[in-house]
């Protein structure tokens, strides 16, 4: 029985490791200026945790194979070094891992959250709602008109609650159902929730951030590769959560300018 358990543990350890080593299911290619830090951190953590996982399973397998009951009254022995060695090993191993991951890992976090958006960043407001994302560009005047929740009229495409009759700044605001941005240009997103909590997740951008009703949350990033990607919601927001998405279109500066011009007509 011990041998069988050992073999099964071995198979589990190897079977789990193979898809990871082969990246059968893995993160898509990174398209952000900060993502490489997250990717590096991910690989390091994967290496350390992976080794810890496989090693633990293998040692467990080895011990259960070796120390089955022999029924011959063999005297129990103890691991050389005893509990003290185990505690010291655990603290040393995990301690260094914790320190390494904790200290180096904070850089990626800092890049996303501690730095302010570049001053030339393109400001875009994103509103999350049941069940979609809508994006607002300031338009030629460079100003966002104020929001009036009581003016929201979705059947009439007024998702944000703009009041162009009274607010001059709102008249040229551009509303889009896709997030269209120029490549290699810092983007400053202002995240606003209309109803309940949502989240903004673009795998390729290595960005995820909750929308919190009542808070307007700033977020910034730079996309480095032209293409079309999916933005999805990762915070349970109701029955249409599974279908809450939008597309991110990263365009060259010229294409973007042209798109913007088209929109403001």
């Amino acid at each position: 029985m011990g041998k069988l358990l050992a073999v099964v543990l071995l198979v589990i350890a190897i079977g789990s490791a193979i898809p990871i080593l082969m990246h059968t299911w893995w993160m898509p290619e990174d398209i952000s200026s900060h993502g490489y830090m997250i990717d590096k951190q991910m690989s390091e953590t994967m290496a350390e945790s992976g080794i810890a996982f496989v090693a633990a399973q293998l040692v467990l397998a080895g011990f259960v194979a070796m120390f089955g009951d022999k029924k011959n009254g063999r005297k129990a022995t103890h691991l050389p070094g005893g509990a003290k060695a185990v505690v010291i090993a655990a603290i040393a191993l995990v301690g260094t891992e914790v320190l390494a991951l904790g200290v180096f890992g904070k850089d990626a976090w800092a890049e996303v959250y501690f730095k302010k958006a570049a001053t030339d960043a393109l400001p875009i407001q994103v509103q999350a709602e049941q069940f979609g994302f809508y994006f607002r560009y300031a338009g030629p005047d460079g100003k966002f008109g104020p929001l009036h929740p009581d003016k929201i009229d979705e059947g009439n495409q007024n998702f944000f609650g703009l009041d162009p009759a009274n607010d001059v700044e709102s008249r040229d605001d551009i509303i889009a159902a896709s997030l269209v941005i120029p490549v290699n240009k810092p983007i400053s997103l202002m995240m606003h929730a209309k109803d309940v909590g949502h989240s903004f997740y673009v795998r390729e951008l290595r960005i995820q951030q909750d929308f919190v009703p009542g808070l307007d949350i700033p977020m910034h990033f730079t996309a480095t590769k032209v293409g079309k990607y999916e933005i999805v919601c990762t915070q349970l927001c109701g029955l249409g959560h599974y279908n809450m998405r939008a597309y991110l279109e990263v365009k060259s500066q010229e294409d973007f300018d042209q798109w913007l011009k088209q929109q403001s007509q």
Binding site: E129, Q130, F131, G132, E154, G155, N156, Q157, F159, G238, L239, G240, N243
Partner: peptide, 8 residues
Amino acid sequence: NIHPWMHG
């Protein structure tokens, strides 16, 4: 709600 533009 799934398609916020749908209105009747």
